[in-house]
């Protein structure tokens, strides 16, 4: 971990997440905290996926989001965050955190015709 002092709501939440292979794999949709009243709070995980919007959106908007993007949610332990810059980078590939499943489901809906590789 190369994280020093971080502002969770302005610096981390709603930031793009990339995995170890620099693949886009979601947005930090919410942050999970742990602690009791009178004690210090500890960040335990980042929550990824539209399911994490439930407490952030009005009900009508949540229904709309679920229609477009589903309502799944994955929990990535905070210890798996490698560093934070203009993106949040994870220590391992997206699949290890269950972040690639929706892409897999979408892939099955596409016809199996290949496109050309883009030349540099």
């Amino acid at each position: 971990m190369t994280i020093g002092r971080v502002r969770l709501l302005t610096q981390v939440r709603d930031l793009q997440i990339i995995d170890r292979d620099e693949q886009d794999c979601g947005i930090v949709d919410d942050v999970e905290l742990e602690g009791r009243p009178g004690e210090g709070l500890r960040v335990t995980a980042i929550l990824v996926g539209p399911g994490a919007y439930r407490t952030r959106l009005p009900r009508w908007a949540m229904r709309l989001v679920a229609l477009i993007a589903g309502d799944h949610m994955a929990r990535v332990p905070w210890g798996e965050v490698a560093y934070i810059s203009s993106t949040v980078q994870l220590a391992r590939p997206a699949q290890d955190y269950g972040l690639g499943e929706a892409e897999q489901r979408a892939r099955r809906l596409l016809p199996q015709i290949g496109g050309l590789n883009a030349p540099e």
């Binding site: 793009q16 997440i17 693949q23 886009d24 794999c25 979601g26 947005i27 990824v48 539209p50 477009i68 993007a69 929706a102 892409e103 897999q104 979408a106 892939r107 809906l109 596409l110 199996q112 015709i113 290949g114 496109g115 590789n117 883009a118």
Partner: peptide, 24 residues
């Protein structure tokens, strides 16, 4: 827009199957 908002893989440099939600 949609892919960037939800953090999906996106881009025309990727083959259609490499960014399936973007393609859909």
């Amino acid at each position: 827009s949609l892919s960037q908002f939800f953090g999906w893989r996106w881009g025309r440099r990727l083959k259609p199957h490499e960014a399936p939600r973007f393609t859909l």
